[in-house]
Design a protein around this nucleic acid. Sequence first.
DNA 1: TGTTTAATATGATATTAATCATTTAAAAAA
DNA 2: TTTTTTAAATGATTAATATCATATTAAACA
Lengths: 229, 229
Amino acid sequence: MMSRCEQCLIKEFNNLNALSKEELKKISDSKDIHTFKKGEVIFSEGKFVTGVYCIKEGVCKSSQLNANGKEQIVKFTKKGDLIGYHSAITNEANTITVTALNDVSACFIPQELIKKPLDENAKFSTAMFKTVCSDLKEANNAITNISTNTVHQRMADLIIFLKDTYGSTEAGVIKIQLSRKEIASAVGTATESAIRILSGFKKDGLIDLTGKSITILNEIELKRLAEGL
Amino acid sequence: MMSRCEQCLIKEFNNLNALSKEELKKISDSKDIHTFKKGEVIFSEGKFVTGVYCIKEGVCKSSQLNANGKEQIVKFTKKGDLIGYHSAITNEANTITVTALNDVSACFIPQELIKKPLDENAKFSTAMFKTVCSDLKEANNAITNISTNTVHQRMADLIIFLKDTYGSTEAGVIKIQLSRKEIASAVGTATESAIRILSGFKKDGLIDLTGKSITILNEIELKRLAEGL
DNA sequence: TGTTTAATATGATATTAATCATTTAAAAAA
DNA sequence: TTTTTTAAATGATTAATATCATATTAAACA
């Protein structure tokens, strides 16, 4: 059960591969494998997280609540993602809530073991900088996307994003299942609107819908739609 | 003219104060003071920036263009802000365009002189991490704000933000002048809608408008509006 | 297995905001 | 200063999206 970080393949997907053998060994000695069931909250907005999670398996959503309690999904994680670094870096409460969208297994790495290499290992620190900058770039793109594109465009965009990020089966079924409410929250629209637009896409032969499964039938046209053509 | 960074007061507003005397001296020796007239572009989306700018005086907007060429303002800078760090950290093209909103004077610091302390000076590196994380936090808040709040709410929110960030005269006039188009772009709405909402706020006695100047008359009610009450 | 609860779907309607058209006012340029 | 250009304002209209109501389906549970 207690596998060694040094041998862990997941780290090839993230910045932990910039750590030295000694640093990895220390992490390996004190890390903890946590599992979360679908729907379980990994950490919440407003709470301090005392370490960083490395997602080994499963998908999470990062979301915020607005003043009226409406949820906005700001990011989806993928395998290998390091989450919860905000608290570790800033010593401030987290500003997002991360929730498992399916069964998730993640290694919990105590803060100190991240902070030390962040100060001492330039390779790791540079890699982490790139990650945070990339997250910021994506967030800026999302701002522009939400405020200048229509809900139709954003829905088409989300479907393409989900396919590109999580892949699809040979039959074309996207390998992530979201509720209509979650889809609406990611797109930034009302649940009913999301449902209507998905139904419309189905009627137009762009996608197929079976329960929570989405199958892309016409990716080219979806991409055109996403660009507003 | 060639003032020394070591004595510069602006650095007290940003992370450069975490640098050692030697590091500051190096920067001082090769920095360049650039001035930009109102409306001038400091650097553009898609271009590489070969250094970081430290804003000594003036205000800038950071914006992106969407596929249809519509501008979205994603951030306003203030005195002391370090801008253009994205390229320096990631070695990638910049993803935003920064434009002077009034006359701006900024010190240009070549990339190497930032990169080296970023690797070697943990205090500076930690400070920069906090800045990027804070920018990311703000961007996430903007996503939630734009997609869950109405244009009215966001307009009220922007007015409060501008007052808090740039201050106001004794008479209550906010110390930054934006065109209606820029206000619309920051709020994420059409120019006509922005104009209409501002006129509405004026009619309701919340603000006063004289040319491009905005005066807050009822901050409490504006804050209530921003929260959707 | 039946019963309850929650999720999805869809119609009708209301609201919000965008677009188009035109006027007025303010800057910039000749 | 006059002319030209650009920005701001406002009305009318259309389009997009949210909300409310209700039906249908699927999932959870007793």
